[in-house]
């Protein structure tokens, strides 16, 4: 009696599992015209915003999957022979180039981007930029005051390397994240190789920790665990807007990042993908996105949202991303010794 109940229970579970197992293939066949599949590197709220607006405008439903940039690029490369997504949305061009080099991205030149600055457009036509952000310093003013009294807030990268700040700084680990690598490269490029390394050697012992995720410094500074953190200004601004006591400082000679969008080669809905790229670059979407993300829009017709930091007012270095890529192994190897 009991035995049959147990067997029946297990059978019931297995039978109930069958639809789940069949799900994948069924739903692939069902792929309809009114659908778009987006791999999204921009954050949860921003992904949803794009999806809702696009649906409103075109009637096309956007399904998005949000994850870290490296992971999504890796997925697109792995799925190259049977693409599961239409769009890769957000993240720096370097990641999109990684996918393009493996032949996983389509080419598309959006007519909407005609007026965009040249640096926002890929010479090989794989990607188009839709926002700009830059590296900055976040300060938890409350903790800073408690710790350092009337010491003035750091204004430059040099100010940040003040020995008084020992143990109060967070910087993302360049070996774990490409955005943190941007910080290290910025120092090397603006000061030159030798002076750059002596700056980093001075700064590294002051850093309390090197978290792996780019989202960590704003959070650790926002919640008052540390006084100072290096992060993207838009990420810091988002925390400030949420009510965390974060003050934003953009030092001179910083580096910027252009966030880009691209279409996946052979994706299930290629026409919708083109419409979506046009939409992302449009005045309407750019206005809404800039307001939500506090990044700087690239569509020249869009005004800068309140609270955002104007990148044109920022002193940007001329960042050589090819050099940065070529030096990666050497820089990271030397970095290990500096951090030790």
């Amino acid at each position: 009696m009991k035995r049959s109940i147990i067997i029946a229970a297990f059978l019931a579970v297995l039978v109930s599992a069958v639809p789940t197992f069949a799900k994948g293939s069924q739903e692939q066949q069902k792929a309809q015209e009114k659908e778009l599949l987006v791999y999204s590197i921009v954050n949860e709220a921003e992904s949803k915003l794009f999806g809702d607006l696009f649906k409103e405008e075109t009637g096309i439903t956007v399904n998005y999957l949000r994850a870290a940039s490296g992971e999504l690029v890796n997925r697109i490369i792995a799925e190259k022979d049977a693409p599961k997504a239409d769009i890769l949305l957000g993240g720096p061009a370097s990641f999109h180039i990684q996918a393009a080099d493996k032949g996983a991205l389509a080419t598309y030149e959006s007519p909407v981007a005609a007026q965009f600055p040249a640096y926002a457009k890929d010479p090989d036509r794989h990607w188009t930029g839709f926002y700009v952000t830059a590296l900055g310093i976040g300060v938890n003013e409350k903790r800073f005051k408690e710790k350092f009294g009337d010491t003035p807030l750091p204004k430059t990268w040099e100010d940040l390397a003040n020995p008084r700040f020992k143990g109060e700084i967070v910087v993302t680990d360049p070996a774990a994240s490409s955005t943190a690598y941007l910080f290290v490269q910025t120092q090397l490029q603006r000061l030159g190789w030798d002076a750059g390394w002596s700056y980093l050697e001075k700064l590294a012992p002051l850093v309390g920790q090197f978290p792996s995720s780019g989202g960590a410094p704003p959070q650790l500074v926002g919640s008052g665990e540390y006084s100072l953190g290096v992060a993207y200004v838009h990420a810091l601004a988002t925390y400030r807007e949420k009510g965390f006591p974060v003050k934003l400082i953009v030092p001179p000679q910083t580096a910027g990042e252009v966030g880009v969008v691209s279409a996946v080669k052979g994706g299930p809905n290629p026409d919708n993908a083109k419409r979506f790229i046009d939409f992302v670059l449009s005045q309407k979407a750019q206005t809404a996105f800039a307001k939500e993300s506090l990044t700087v829009p690239l569509n020249p017709a869009v005004a800068l949202p309140p609270g955002a930091v104007d990148v044109s007012s920022i002193d940007l270095i001329k960042y050589d991303s090819k050099l940065a890529g070529d030096q990666r192994d050497a820089v990271l190897a030397r970095w290990q010794k500096v951090v030790k």
Binding site: S69, G70, A78, A176
Partner: peptide
């Protein structure tokens, strides 16, 4: 164990 995640998520290095 952290490296397993970060090498892929941060550098797309499977």
């Amino acid at each position: 164990a952290t490296e397993v995640y970060t090498q892929l998520s941060g550098w797309a290095d499977a």
